[in-house]
Structures are given as C-alpha cells and as structure tokens.
C-alpha cells in the first residue's frame, strides 16, 4: 500500500467543481494501466480498462467539501458560501488553504450568546490590512479547504478529504494489483459528489454500465454516545446495505459477501441513515443499474481530521480486487 500516494491525494486541493488538480494526479498514476483515460464536461476522470463480460462502473469521488469566498469586507475579512455539508462547529478556529497556498483562519463575529453561532456568523481572516490588500490576495469565487496535514499515526490515518480520496486510493491500488478481470471495467473518479452526486449522474449516463460499485467513507459507530450502527473502525471492509441515496442491489451485496468469505477478507455491513454516495446516482441511470458500495468506516467525517484504520484500507483494497476478478453468478 502506497501511503505516500494517499497522503499526496489527501493534501491536494479539490473542492466540488474544482477537481482538476486531483484528476491530474490520478491520471498520472493510472494512465499506463488503462486503455483510455479522459475527462468529461463535468470534470469526471473516466478510465477504461478493457475486459471481458459485462460493463462495471467503479466510482470514487475526487471532490471534497470546502468554502467559497462570497464577499470581501472593507477591513479585508472574507465571508464565504459553504460547498457541501459543512458545520459551523467543524469550521470554527480551523486553518484553511487556498490553491495559491494562502492560509486563512476561520473565526466568528462577536456573539452575545454562544448559542447564536451559525455558519453565516463566521468569517475567514487572511491577515489582510484592509479590503484593497485582501483583494490583491483573493477574489470572490476563490475556494479553500482544511489545511491540516495528512499523517499516519499508530494504526490510523488522519487527514482532511479522506472523504473521498480514500475511495479514489482504493480504486487505484486495486487497479495496480489486478491480475485478471471478470468485467469490462470503467474506473470513474467523479466530480461534485458532495453537492448532490452530480458527476456520477453524467458519467453513468455516458458509460452505460451493467453494474455500479462505489467507494466512499461511512460512519464508524464507536465514538462516545454515537447512535448505534453496524459499522466500526477495525471492522474490515464495509459492505453497504443502504443509505439515503440507494438500497444496494442484492446481486452486488451477495457478490461482495461471497468474495470476502472465499478469500477470508475481514468484512462488515453498513447502513447510513443520512448521506448518500455515487451509487445513488448510478443505480437510477437510464434503465436502472444494479449497484453497491464498498465503504470504509471513518471517524470525524467532514472535519479537518477524518480518521480511518490502516487495516481497513487494506481489507477494502483486497475485497475490491477479488470483486473485480470474480464473475457475478
């Protein structure tokens, strides 16, 4: 497992709609391993690895949540629009980085009552002297992401944008390890998942797959007082049963289950009450596509410090390899 690549992927800056740098990184990594590798109108990177049998579309999303500058005030402080599921609790007092390397700190207006805190009370401070100075450094429309550095610590990986560079990483690693293939494979690194599965929607339309398989993070339900859910960190590759965007198809669930059992890969099941992922768009494309998801149980999703277990990453990669090498009965 190439952890340096994973770190590089997570450190790159790719808010929804601004995935070019991630696509370039991934393309470099996989272009020699695939037959055709191109970017579509919405910024999806679609890589075709020709093979026998039915068409399978794999999807991991390149984009991450972030902030977009919407206003620069007379004192040089920035207001922002949220891209994707941001929470003021997770943004407050965090460091953010723009593609130029510029750092901004999120802080809050003076409040009479701390309970009044809301996302529109927050602002970004880039340390500008005044409006003019700020406008030399940023423009309205510029985007930024959590500036935390990815690290491996103990048994875990901690980083922003784990959601969903980890999905992209699992796909890349599986592609590298693949010895044979039971499907005609499309590795699609999608755009704009965090704002409503938009890249996967158009990619599924162009690819016209027979099966869909997405890779994404899910909740690790083992933190203090969290609502009970089946998936946990260190529980192995998580086979999704449902989330708000789809009910996984029994064919795909059975396929993943049988591959995991045959190869003795540690696995678990996952159900997400909120949230969705790219298979949600793929399964209702055109005439309908049986779809499933391999998830990785993660803590602190959508914060600057998303966390997952190294052993779970390995289990997900192994399960993916087996799932692509084995025919669906």
């Amino acid at each position: 497992m190439n952890l340096e690549l994973l770190k590089k992927l997570c450190a790159a800056n790719g808010v929804s709609g601004h995935e070019e740098s991630i696509a370039a990184l991934i393309k470099d990594e996989i272009k020699d391993l695939t037959d055709d590798c191109k970017t579509d109108a919405l910024g999806n990177l679609i890589a075709h690895k020709k093979g026998p049998g039915k068409k399978m579309m794999l999807a991991g999303h390149m984009d991450q949540i972030g902030l977009m500058v919407s206003h620069i005030d007379k004192d040089g402080f920035l207001r922002f629009a949220s891209i994707g599921g941001n929470s003021h609790h997770y943004l407050m007092a965090q460091r953010f980085v723009f593609p130029s390397g510029l750092i901004g700190v999120v802080s809050c207006e003076r409040l009479d009552d701390p309970k009044d805190m809301a996302i529109d009370k927050l602002y970004i401070d880039i340390g500008a002297k005044d409006q003019e100075d700020a406008m030399k450094q940023v423009k309205v429309g510029d985007v930024c992401v959590f500036a935390t550095t990815p690290v491996v610590s103990g048994n875990v990986f901690i980083t922003p944008a784990l959601d969903d560079r980890i999905g992209c990483f699992i796909m890349i690693e599986a592609l590298k390890r693949l010895k044979k293939q039971a499907f005609d494979l499309y590795f699609v690194f999608t755009s704009q998942e965090e704002v409503g599965l938009r890249g996967a929607t158009t990619a599924a339309y162009s690819v016209e797959p027979d099966y869909g398989l997405a890779f994404d993070v899910t909740i690790s339900a083992d933190t203090p007082k969290i609502r009970p859910l089946p998936s946990k960190m260190y529980g192995g590759a998580a086979i999704k049963l449902k989330d708000r965007s789809l009910l996984c198809h029994p064919t795909i669930i059975a396929h993943l289950e049988s591959c995991a059992k045959k190869s003795k890969i540690k696995h678990q099941y996952e159900i997400l009450e909120m949230g969705g992922t790219d298979s949600g768009a793929i399964h209702i494309s055109r005439g309908g596509v049986p779809s499933g998801v391999i998830s990785i149980a993660s803590r602190h999703i959508h914060t600057a410090n998303e966390m997952c277990a190294l052993s779970d990453i390995e289990d997900c990669i192994e399960l993916t390899v087996k799932a692509l090498e084995t025919k669906i009965d």
Binding site: L42, M68, S70, H71, R79, G141, R198, T202
Partner: peptide, 22 residues
C-alpha cells in the same frame, strides 16, 4: 458576482442532464 450559495436555477438540470452540458 451573485454572492450567495442559496437558490437554484435550470442550470442544475442542464449540467447534470444526459452526459452534462457546462
């Protein structure tokens, strides 16, 4: 610039319809 992330327009349909139009 339209300085808000709220509201929606028919662009939402066009860029995700079919293979997607910018």
């Amino acid at each position: 610039y339209r300085r808000s992330g709220m509201g929606g327009t028919d662009s939402g349909s066009y860029h995700t319809g079919g293979a997607g139009i910018p």
